[in-house]
Simulated scan of single mutants.
Amino acid sequence: MSSHIGIPVNGVIGSSFFINNLIEINYDKRKVFFYKDSRRNRRRIERRYKKVPITLEDAKPYVNANVVIDSELIPTKLLIDVGNSDAIWLFQNANHKIKVPVNNFDDYLGKGFSGDVEGKRARISEFLISDFKFIKPIVAFPDSSSIKHVTMVPGRVGSIGGEILRRFSVVFDYQNEFLYLKKNRRYFAPFVYNKSGIEIRHSGVQWVKETVQLRAFPITVDHVEINDDKKATGLKYKFQLKPVFEIANLRKNSPAAKCGLLKGDVIISINKNIAYKYSLEQINSMLRSEEDKWITIEVERDHQLLKFRFQLIDIL
């Protein structure tokens, strides 16, 4: 998990942590707040948030929502999965009405506890939850073989993930089976995806030698400032641990694959900037750009430095 997220992951917070408190995930502030389940806190939340009924099954939260595919409104029961970075997952074999739109592409959807998940991505017409409506969200349709080991509760047809949830401040009330939603500044953000076709992972760290400029400060002697310009500056080296980024997966027929990049290539620079100066989140954000940008990537392959260039093109 750590290598694919790009930060150390030491564990997972489970449902028993949620059961006795009101838990707010504030995506704007990047903080989680824990409130005692008191009448005062509940009234304050109910005034500011939209209350949405949920159910708890096998200690996991589920919500009813609607999707519109090819002009047909389809009721769905979805797992609320804050660990899933996609907007929505839909399982084709769970409901005969759920069909992948014609305009789609095969993609690597992520890594689960059971291994890699493959499937398709496509835009659907609408997604509706309570009074909130989203136009043309991007939906992942995992292959049945990738999720065959997942235990399904009756009626579940998919998941709602972080790309929807991050558009709200979210409060979970497990005890009374409610979800509270309040729009944040990301509510109207467009739905984007990784146009490059590259899945990047953090594959370790490296020692990097950097030069640091030393500057001699002026010395005052008897109120006279002395500053010898010849000795005013100097250099020394410092060593720091920096991340190493590697191509973990490559979508077939994607811009990155067509230009010649390969799985296992170690990324040295992106658009002439050294790769380790970015976080994995920043790199992924760059590859999910709304615009059809050109990307230049320098990689190391078999002890050789190679340079590739491709354009981010929206095929949906």
Rank of each mutant, 00 (worst) to 15 (best):
N93T: 12
A87L: 08
I129S: 10
V117M: 07
S130P: 00
K97Q: 05
K136S: 14
H149R: 14
I80A: 10
V100A: 09
L73R: 15
R123E: 04
A87P: 08
L78G: 13
L79P: 14
V139D: 05
P75T: 08
V139Y: 04
L90N: 05
K136C: 04
D143W: 09
I138D: 06
I135A: 11
N104Q: 09
K120T: 01
G110Q: 03
K99P: 01
S85F: 11
E72P: 01
I147T: 10
K133V: 00
I147E: 07
K136M: 07
F105A: 07
P142S: 02
K99Q: 09
E72S: 14
S114K: 01
V82L: 10
S71R: 15
D70W: 06
Q92D: 02
A140I: 03
P137K: 04
D86F: 14
I124A: 01
S145E: 12
S114H: 07
D116G: 01
V117C: 02
K77G: 00
I129V: 13
K97A: 02
K148G: 06
E126Q: 11
L73H: 11
G110V: 05
I138L: 08
I69C: 05
H149Q: 13
K120H: 00
A122L: 01
Y108T: 05
G119L: 00
N103V: 08
N64E: 13
H149P: 02
D106Y: 15
L78N: 12
Y108A: 06
K120D: 04
I129M: 06
V68N: 07
K97C: 05
P75I: 08
D86Q: 15
D143R: 13
D131Q: 12
